[in-house]
């Protein structure tokens, strides 16, 4: 194989890998249903990637007593959580092991068990949805943390037809302060 052909293959393969990352997320953001989730962020700093806010949602910890199916799930298992709008925020109303048919006024979000049940009806299960990091411009993490402490931050999440989710906007008292747009 000559050098030019080899280089073309390299560029195409590496570019497609990166485009795949972008396309998957962009699809979720463009086609997904929008839900608003209540958060309780914390603020670490990534050495690689500047300031980011670590986010915890109300739906990140679910009680086994409320959703007994969670007892059967192990670490890393996929889980589908049905969300329904109750007031300003969307709340979990059911969990499934596989993707069920979603009803009109509900949204199905996909997550993975990060900390399974330790037994007993009172225990909790932690779930990660891939929306737990939010990168902010350098130096603004502290400001967001301050607002978090006032309890006024919520996140607008886009959830696509497959249950994949992505952060669409950061809301302060229901108003957008950071919006994710392509242009």
């Amino acid at each position: 194989m000559n050098q030019s052909k080899a280089m073309l293959i390299i560029v195409v393969v590496l570019t497609l890998t990166l485009v795949g990352m972008v396309a998957k997320k962009q699809y979720t953001l463009n086609t997904g249903a929008l839900v608003v989730l209540k958060t309780t962020p914390v603020d670490p700093r990534s050495l690689f990637r500047g300031d980011y806010v670590r986010l915890n949602y109300d739906i990140s910890r679910l009680h086994v007593s409320q959703f007994p199916l969670l007892q059967e799930l192990e670490e890393h298992d996929p889980v589908f959580v049905t969300l329904k709008k109750q007031g300003m925020f969307w709340q979990p109303i059911a969990v499934f092991k596989s993707m069920p048919e979603a009803e009109n006024d509900m949204v199905m979000i996909k997550g993975h068990i990060s900390s399974p049940s330790r037994g007993g009806k009172s225990s909790q299960v932690s779930i990660k949805y891939g929306i737990e990091n939010y990168f902010v411009p350098e130096g603004e993490g502290r400001d967001l943390e301050r607002l978090r402490n006032q309890g006024n931050i919520s996140m607008q999440i886009s959830v696509d037809a497959f249950g994949n989710s992505g952060i669409k906007a950061v809301l302060l008292n229901g108003e957008s302060i950071y919006v994710e747009t392509l242009f």
């Binding site: 390299i10 990166l18 990352m21 990091n133």
Partner: peptide, 21 residues
């Protein structure tokens, strides 16, 4: 440099889209 930039791109795309995997 191309290999390094490929890695930088992975990290920065993860940052742009807040990918937490």
């Amino acid at each position: 440099l191309g290999v390094i930039l490929f890695g930088v791109n992975i990290m920065l795309i993860a940052q742009i889209y807040h990918i937490d995997s």
